[in-house]
Simulated assay, not measured.
Amino acid sequence: MGLGSLRDDLNPLQRFGYEVRQVRKGRKITQGRLASGTGYSVAYVSKVESGKVMPSPKFARGCDHVFGTNGLFERLHPNAEGNAPEWFEPYLNLEREATAILDYSSTLFMGILQTSDYARAVIRAAHPREEPAEIEAKVDSRIGRRRVMERKNPPILWVVLHEACLRTLVGSKKVMHAQLERILRFAESPQVTIQVLTFNAGAPPSHLPFTLLRHRDKSMRLYSETPYRGHVADSEAAVSDAEATFDLLRATSLSPDDSLSFTRKVMEEYDT
């Protein structure tokens, strides 16, 4: 049995759930059997079918296995970034098209740089009541952002990391060691520059994280966050102030070479 007629009134998340439900019922498969076959709970299947939760890629592959649909649901899977909150979508669109990304991370590493285990620990801390499958969907979404650095012409990425990013124990020592190891590998790319702003540098020019994104038309956008949501600004005054702050951050940080040596030293401390 094929898919039902497409519903124009549904967003991609709802459409995926609708098609799962249609095929499941057409094959006379219960939610319990689908849950067992995909390795998820009945509650999770119900939420996916009602369009309330982003299905993980693993769940999509599991549907194909249970239904025998030969990769159909994996292809139908909504863009993983659809799991991001609505207010974050403008930033993701800008990130995908950026020619340069200038980021200041004050406490946690930016999403592009995160390992799966680090992202999982961060997301679990922010969403302690969500089911493991929902956490994994968010992890998949965040890790998917790496693709921007894997495209044919990746953007220039210049990141200033406050030492707090390196010192804040996220997950475990093992998780942090792997995270810092990833930072060092990332910095091997000619497109990537990493600098560390140490505690010894004193009060930082900014205590809040922010990101500047430049595009092909030379325009610049500023992304900043409050505790509950993010905001994209393109006003000349806001962007100019952020550029000046980023210049100060770079000037007061360790050099790129010294930053990598410092990062390597902190990474080795997590071995003890």
Results as ranks from 00 to 15, higher is better:
M1D: 04
G2P: 13
L3H: 04
G4F: 07
G4L: 05
L6N: 07
L6G: 04
R7S: 10
R7C: 07
P12V: 02
F16M: 05
R21L: 08
Q22E: 02
R24I: 07
K25F: 03
K25A: 07
R27T: 02
I29H: 09
T30R: 12
T30K: 09
Q31K: 09
Q31Y: 00
G32V: 13
G32E: 14
R33Y: 10
L34E: 05
L34D: 11
A35T: 03
T38E: 07
Y40L: 14
Y44V: 08
V45W: 12
M54I: 04
A60F: 05
R61D: 00
R61L: 10
G62T: 02
H65Q: 14
N70E: 10
E74W: 03
H77L: 13
N79Y: 05
G82F: 01
G82V: 03
G82C: 03
N83T: 08
P85V: 08
E89C: 04
L92H: 05
R96L: 13
E97D: 15
L102T: 10
L102G: 11
S105I: 11
S106C: 12
S106E: 08
F109L: 15
G111Y: 13
S116F: 00
D117Q: 14
Y118I: 02
Y118K: 03
R120M: 01
R120E: 15
I123M: 13
A125R: 12
A126N: 02
A126C: 05
R129H: 10
P132Y: 01
P132A: 08
P132K: 07
A133I: 06
E134P: 02
I135Y: 11
I135M: 00
D140C: 00
D140Q: 08
R142A: 09
R142E: 04
G144T: 03
K152Q: 11
I156C: 05
L161C: 02
E163L: 06
A164S: 05
L166P: 08
R167V: 02
V170K: 07
V170F: 05
K174M: 06
K174D: 03
V175L: 09
M176W: 09
A178Q: 06
Q179V: 04
L180Y: 01
L184P: 07
R185L: 11
F186V: 11
F186E: 13
A187L: 01
Q191F: 08
Q191G: 01
I194Q: 11
I194D: 13
V196Y: 09
V196T: 14
L197N: 00
G202D: 09
G202E: 09
S206L: 11
P209G: 12
L213I: 10
R214L: 07
R216A: 15
Y223V: 03
S224I: 09
R229G: 00
R229L: 05
D234P: 01
A237Y: 01
V239T: 04
D241E: 15
F246D: 08
D247W: 06
L254Q: 07
P256Y: 14
D257F: 11
D258R: 13
T263C: 15
K265C: 07
V266L: 13
V266K: 14
E268T: 05
T272H: 14
